[in-house]
Amino acid sequence: MLLAIPALLTVFQSLFVVPADGIGIGEFTKIDNYLFLFKNEIFWATCLRSIWFALIFIVGSTVIGLAAALLLNEKFVGRMVLRGLLVLPWACPWLIVGIIWKWFLDGNIGLFNGVLIRLHLISHYKDFLSDPKWALWMTALAAIWRQSCLVALLLLAGLQTLPRDIWDAASVDGAGIIQRFRHITLPWLRPALTVVTVLNVIYGLMQFDVIFAMTQGGPGSATTLLSFLIYRQFFIFTNFGIGSALAVALAFIALIGGLIAVKTLYRKIEV
């Protein structure tokens, strides 16, 4: 209930022009706040950018996380060390992930550039975060860095319950490694994958801390996601009505995203 009341209030506020002190509700404007948004190009562009960021984030962290989980499910020397390391990024608060990556990628002092130069991939230092073409990818990369570790931990927990004999039986029957992966491992992981994807959808769409630390929505508006727009409307322009409308829109997108994830992943279980 502690959460339900604010949630309803947000919807409620989105229908009004709320005065800047936030006390009282001001003029009732029906759906004007929404109409304002829907007619606004910035809103649509930001929506698309948010969804794009979330997609990169979801695909990236799932692929890397799955790969890490598969790797750690094999036996090799140092496996426990690597498993311990997986916890490291996950223990970092999102904001600190942003800070760490901001300076790692920095165009003047960052080690990332130092590595690329040593590998002769670039000829001089390049500031990825102030390049509109790269900024969104790099912020997503930082977010993936943390999330993929959580994904790996969760999927690994799922993998370890996979009975070894099914896998062995399939390989006796002549199933190749790719076939075994597709027909045994993936179906087995599907419940875990569903959960992970829903989590990723939420974290991807709601990402604020990393953006705040790394780019503050810049350069220009290259990394201004819906979450950042909401923050600006609320606390910089104190425009509670528009901000709430944005928040409702974001929650709506997240809900749809979550539903899509659940539907696509669950349907395949029955097949």
């Binding site: 339900a4 604010p6 209030l9 939420i202 923050y231 928040a247």
Partner: peptide, 19 residues
């Protein structure tokens, strides 16, 4: 409610606490 993110709820909470 686990899925409803804090970002969406911040304004009402802000106002509550302010009051």
């Amino acid at each position: 409610s686990r899925i409803v993110p804090g970002l969406v709820l911040v304004a009402p909470i802000f106002i509550f606490l302010r009051v």
